[in-house]
Design a protein around this nucleic acid. Sequence first.
RNA 1: ACGCCAGUAGCUCAAUUGGCAGAGCAGCCGUCUCCAAAGCGGCAGGUUGGGGGUUCGAUUCCCUCCUGGCGUG
Length: 307
Amino acid sequence: MAGEIPLLVIVGPTASGKSALAMELARSCGAEILSVDSMQVYQGMDIGTAKPTQRQRREIPHHLLDRVRPDEQFSAARFVEMADRVIEESNARGAKLIATGGTPMYFKALFEGLFEGPSADEALRKRLRAMSGPELHERLKQVDAAAAERIHAADSRRLVRALEVYELTGQPISTLQKQWERQQPARHRAVWIGLRWEREALNRRINARVKEMIEAGWVEELRGLLAEFPVLSKTAREATGYAQLVDHVMGRIGLDEAVEQIKIDTRQLARRQMKWFRRFRNVQWLEGQNEIARNAEDARRMWGLAS
RNA sequence: ACGCCAGUAGCUCAAUUGGCAGAGCAGCCGUCUCCAAAGCGGCAGGUUGGGGGUUCGAUUCCCUCCUGGCGUG
């Protein structure tokens, strides 16, 4: 029966060693890798997103890398659609799949689903965004008091989304979102493992890795990218470090200043990721500082593939 | 050595004619259902360089010492 082997999910903060562990496992189990990452989908953004190298990708098939142009918008919904297709197709072939990456929201959306509602409508959003936070909040209170209660008046992004959903469907987002409350079975069967680190140790790894990325030519890569795509899409631009490096390339800030800020942003990113992943209750944690071989062996056992 | 300027939260800086020492960033906690590497909320943080003086009251005025910067020797 197709789909008999569950997915292996590997979560963990940036720089925790997810990719290395996934590669090791893929090699030893003959599995393929599904990237669950909002930034590695972008073409041409390689160094700063720590994308697996061409060499690694020749060795092990990777899915959902380089699927979007850097001037294109991307979203959780598009990700889920693409990932579902990859999983379905892998199941059909009987291929084992390891899902790993740094975007917690995408894991949640992929396994728990998004509520059935309208997708982003940029024109409508633009119209709504012209209003101030309190105005949006007041307006939402009229049509969806429950949502207005939960969303802070300053959180214009969520206020805009809630109003967008209401205008497009005539239904309050708070009602539609209840779909998620029913304990539905997970959309895909999976074994979840995570890599965790003591915070200070991870910070040191992050600082070192940012430095390595710069030495590996991140700035030059970005210059080339900007030559082809002078304006990155709103979502692509949100990748950690890219805004600072764009400022540097434009001559607005020095490289040292940009690098320091990137280190700070990356540490903050890692913290937010850890907070999310801690809330995924079915994750079995492995210690990041262990030898890869040891973690891989544990992971294989958890996946039910012990030799 | 002399002169001038500065010293306030981890960092960068605010504080009206002397009147309860604030903000941004970093840090910590929380939130998150089609932008999520995003967005949003909260908390903590200070013998105002040290010492003395004037005053009901000094970050603010006076004296002195320390530290840093600039200028002249």
